[in-house]
Design a protein around this nucleic acid. Structure first.
Lengths: 149, 149
DNA sequence: CTGCCACTTCAAGCCAACTTGAGGTCAAGC
DNA sequence: GCTTGACCTCAAGTTGGCTTGAAGTGGCAG
């Protein structure tokens, strides 16, 4: 059988051992055996870690992601809920587009003061009316892979 | 003169007094007087708070935002950084679109297991190749205004 | 003048998602 | 058989952006 020890999983997934232990602690992944003290993971943990990363990219918390896995490791979300999430993402995308355009304008506008630029004020009002963007936590894994703000 | 006390500022801006005090503590805003013990703010603090909110929505930290105000309260925006931020938003938007499509597919796909569905695996690989999304902190103010994932 | 109540300060607490550190274990290679 | 070093556990620390609580203050209505 192909059991991977924590070091191997860490290396292949890019997730540090401490984070893997943490994920196990909160029930997000599980180790299937020990060799001595060392956790052994089944190979499919790598796929699961990809899914977790994907979920975090979407802005889900680890707790929410945990709720998306059914007992047998399958993904399990009711269709309606998935559609609702997709729609929420759609709104978030629209908000971010407004914001991106606002930033681009500000970066390029040569008005003496942005506060006096009518276009800027308009964008600000537009941004001000949007539903607030709800950022998730920044993972240490994300930081490792390169912060850039 | 039109001085607003902290309660009024809080009410009009939606920013709680504790946050306003915190902002003042870190030098992001300043009160111009006291009436008794109470902070009095100049009316333009409301604009400044809007800008702060806008900046946070864009994913800037409070420290970064503080750096964008020049001494006289004008915005002094680093163009390169703004472009970088806009580009980061662009990538985030692309990621979220992939994710949204993945969610929609999952909601509608009738394969026995998503992990076995080729289309899903393809979407996942697409998502996996993305540059990681670098989320800012989630503000309490944002939480107050309503979370929605 | 008295009481109320919105404010004040300061320190401590909270949250997520981890990381770090101290001190311990153990399989494998020499 | 001894060392090595990758792992282990558990508790505490980190970060950012606040909130909360306790104890105090002072302007204003009655």
């Amino acid at each position: 059988m192909d059991l991977l020890d924590i070091g191997t999983v860490s290396e292949r997934s890019g997730v540090p051992p401490s984070a893997l232990r943490y994920y196990e602690e909160i029930g997000l992944i599980r180790s299937v055996a020990r060799r001595g003290l060392r956790r052994q993971f089944a190979a499919d943990v790598l796929l699961r870690l990809s899914l977790i990363d994907l979920g975090r990219t979407a802005g889900f918390s680890l707790a929410e992601i945990a709720g998306m896995f059914s007992g047998d490791g399958q993904l399990d979300l009711p269709r309606a809920e998935l559609h609702a999430k997709a729609d929420a993402l759609q709104r978030q995308i629209a908000d971010l587009r407004v914001l991106r355009d606002a930033l681009r304008h500000v970066a390029d506008c040569s008005a003496p003061s942005h506060l006096e630029c009518p276009k800027f004020r308009k964008l600000m009002r537009a941004a001000g009316r949007r539903r607030p963007y709800q950022p998730p936590q920044r993972t240490a894994a994300a930081k490792r892979r390169g912060a850039e703000a």
